[in-house]
Nucleic acid binder design. Structure first.
Lengths: 256, 256
DNA sequence: TAAATAGTGTCTGTAAGACAGTATAAA
DNA sequence: TTTATACTGTCTTACAGACACTATTTA
């Protein structure tokens, strides 16, 4: 990487820090996990002003030597006390929120990330409150969004995170990242039902998904009566053509 | 927005500017337009180090009082000397690039945006070189990506921008944003061919797209022989189920 | 006319949606 | 046995892909 002192100086002239107020770079996390057929999000209850006592997304500052995704992974590890190196956690950048007045204290640019935690469907990972949070816990996503009382622009971010997940599930097997490494088709279908708030037909779901998954050959113990289901692992294959989320009634396909 | 001086002070304690080097917030623009069946991107030739003489995406700093998308719109207007208030230009956030060493001079966090300029297919909007650029012009996207000699991480950004556009064209009518307000189905098909580097069958394309567009009732003058085509305008409808980009041969649908 | 383009019709194969039926296991 | 679950089979309908054919214009 070659550049000389003159050009660096010229750059710093065009970028005069006096003209630009100090910018804080943060990450906000939209962390999802499924239990009992419900999609949950990890939220913290704010301990201080502004938005004291309101629900907020967990997050933190991006360190000087790390990228945003690295900061997101670090915060996630701190918060969940999970070993991210071993756990297959899905983490991706969502969007960046830059409105100058989104935080009344100073200019805070936040790179939101979407994280999917594996869960067996009956219990959720423990999460710990961060520095600025009084308490942390899991909340049903759809309920929270219908209530829409959140700190800063976090309701928007959460909505964007849900939309990203719901959309991506149409054409990828990313829903499997919300399940243990080996899972049954019924478990996977439960994830779709939870995120899309629908009820997928079991038979057709099996027929469509099976060619996109890898059959381990093993069977699950039938938990509550019924035949043991085959255990699958996810592949990184795209679903083509996509799985179609059932059209909401009243959303027209043809104009006028 | 209520917060007191104490909490603001506490926040500034947890965010100690001394611990965080000054951050420059910029936007980079991926500006697309189609001519003669080819997808083009607006690039500048860098005038100074680093990456002197290399191709780069246009961009600039985000002002203290504006959001990233506002900065992107402003830069786009300056660069193209287009009246964005009147022109139906599609502008959306793409992704944010935060690697600490992506710019050797200082920490530059760049929020990339995707812009689609309307074009009649035979000429491209004039673009002007910015401050740090020696010259600006249009370049064929696919050629540039195959060559892959660009400044900073701009080849990655350009690739992400193309992927975003190509993907979104499967399930929205966003391709129409690369055309004048009224367009024919052949023009629209040309856009798909240019972006996807395919050849869509004309008859089937008509059958699939027509219900998603609004027929103005008017007809285009047949330019070079042939029947006059109907003129359509775009709707904001989703294409459901999506238009499928023909599978590249060799990309398997079933695992193993 | 000839040539070029627009748009429709038709055939075929695949797959989605609906749902019945069968197999496997636990209580 | 009863019940619950996992899967498979079948039928119908929709539509994508391929492609022929007609219609409408310019040269």
């Amino acid at each position: 990487m070659t550049f000389d002192a003159t050009s660096a100086k010229k750059f710093l002239e065009s970028y005069n820090p006096r003209d630009y107020p100090s910018i804080a770079l943060t990450v906000d996390l939209v962390v999802f996990a499924v239990t009992d057929g419900v999609l949950n999000v990890a939220l913290v209850r704010r301990g201080g002003h502004p938005f004291k006592d309101a629900l907020a997304l967990p997050g933190g500052f991006v360190g000087p030597e790390e990228s945003a995704i690295q900061a997101a992974g670090r915060e996630l590890a701190e918060e969940t006390t999970l070993d991210l190196g071993r756990l297959p956690v899905h983490l991706e950048q969502l969007a960046t929120y830059t409105s100058p007045d989104r935080d009344p204290r100073m200019r805070v640019v936040s790179v939101a990330h979407l994280a999917l935690l594996a869960s067996d469907g009956t219990s959720l990972p423990k999460i710990a409150a961060g520095s600025d949070a009084a308490s942390a816990g899991w909340y049903p996503v759809h309920d929270v969004l219908r209530g829409k009382e959140m700190a800063f622009d976090h309701a928007t971010i959460l909505g964007d995170g849900l939309a990203r997940l719901a959309g991506k599930m149409e054409y990828t097997t990313v829903a499997a990242r919300l399940l243990p490494e080996e899972f049954t088709l019924t478990q996977l279908r439960t994830v779709y039902d939870a995120v899309w708030e629908t009820t997928m037909a079991a038979g057709n779901f099996t027929r469509k998904m099976t060619p996109r998954l890898h059959d381990t050959g093993r069977k699950s113990r039938g938990g509550a009566g019924g035949a043991p289901a085959a255990l699958f692992t996810a592949t990184d294959l795209h679903i083509h053509p996509p799985l179609t989320k059932p059209q909401a009634p009243g959303s027209p396909v043809t104009p006028e």
